[in-house]
Design a protein around this nucleic acid. Structure first.
Lengths: 220, 220
DNA sequence: ATTATCTTTTGATGTGTATCAAAGTTCTTT
DNA sequence: AAAGAACTTTGATACACATCAAAAGATAAT
């Protein structure tokens, strides 16, 4: 978890973890409408969060991996506002929010950490709004891949290859595209020699080309 | 501000307001890249927040009115991540975030309040993602108008008429549409007798029709 | 192993919104 | 009051992505 804590504070931090919980692939960690009690720190596995409109349209709002925190959507109304689904077998630390609040009153570093996590989520969603509001299909996919790679790389994994945990349809939902469009964009990148794709496996052959697609003006 | 405080606590809350600041129409409250120091509670006036991509594309991420808090995007990196522009002459309470954190360690109700405000923003952005990812132009505009009306109504204003503070282009940027499309959607609603539009003035003639456009399936 | 289901790819066609353009309206400046 | 700038509306056309369709490939179930 966070840095900037001394040994004594680290011990106290253990208090916030009530228990661990395993979630199998396809299962829900929480559902929209569920009473909010806890935040969840992902230890292993991969999740998607999504909201559903009353007429059944689904929007994936994010993909979360080990080390990330989910559940903050529930704080405002004491009910979760989205669904969290495990895209692979996962284990999370259950952190009752009341405990988090209690302890963060005593540990300013924890308090600050909680604020940063929520702020980071706000900033992330701002950039998704930019993506959905202003970018074309290929730019969206390039941004998506670069973001995933960067997060995986921060976890010690390769920055040149990855295995997608989600379907084309889920990627499309996140990016505001149909699955066929996502598939075509993958094929286009592949034809251009930018990536190598074999189903969910993706290898980045030309990272600079991807960055150029994502952010055209930087390269004149 | 918030409810759930006793008289003594209310007094302490005054401490978080360092001073007030006036922002004239068109002026910036803060800019992307500015050092983050404070949250701002809007006393009067109307703001937009927007992010800009490196190649100059602008995405309006929100419109904020009296009683709402802005600036939370800056917490994560100690720098603001978006611009906040006054769309009409405004006055804000400057609340240094360090003070907010200090005091919320002593006042659990304030702590909870801060958490709720940030969570509310996360949830709002989730629904904007749904809007941008899944809805057609007219649905987006209907959702936008209904949201504005609801917030104005909560402030004691009419729920059947409003004066827009932003241009068609700014509405379009928020909704992921071009200004012409926004204009056409307004005209369409007007032709159908759902609203009356005279430039920035909008009167809702058939609120149910608007809700039906926003959320078709509820009405069979 | 075999069948059924789910996922992905690719092609043909359709459509909603963008783009381009121009005129009208309102607001601001002098 | 006049001129200029900014904003809005409306029409004509273009295009990016959606939709429809079908086949191929992977995964799960029996």
């Amino acid at each position: 978890m966070p840095v900037g804590f001394n040994v004594d504070e680290m011990k106290r931090l253990d208090e916030v973890v009530e228990k661990r919980r395993r979630v199998k692939q396809g299962e829900l960690l929480f559902n929209s409408g569920d009473t909010f009690t806890s935040l969840y720190a992902i230890r292993t596995g991969f999740f998607k969060t999504c909201v559903t409109s009353e007429d059944g349209r689904e929007q994936v709002t994010g993909f979360q991996m080990a080390g990330e925190i989910i559940g903050m959507d529930g704080i405002v109304s004491d009910r979760h506002n989205c669904n969290a689904v495990a895209l692979e077998d996962a284990e999370v630390c259950v952190m009752p929010f009341a405990t988090v609040e209690d302890l963060s009153r005593e540990l300013p570093a924890l308090q600050r950490h909680v604020h940063k996590i929520m702020s980071r989520e706000i900033v992330r969603e701002n950039s998704v709004m930019m993506l959905l509001g202003n970018m074309r299909a290929e730019e969206r996919l390039a941004a998506f891949l670069l973001n995933l790679l960067q997060r995986l790389h921060a976890r010690g994994l390769s920055q040149s290859e990855l295995v997608l945990r989600m379907t084309r349809e889920e990627i499309g939902s996140y990016l505001g595209l149909k699955l066929e469009t996502v598939s075509r964009a993958f094929s286009k990148f592949s034809e251009e020699g930018i990536i190598e794709v074999k189903q969910r496996y993706v290898k980045i052959l030309a990272p600079e080309a991807l960055k150029k697609i994502f952010n055209p003006q930087t390269y004149f």
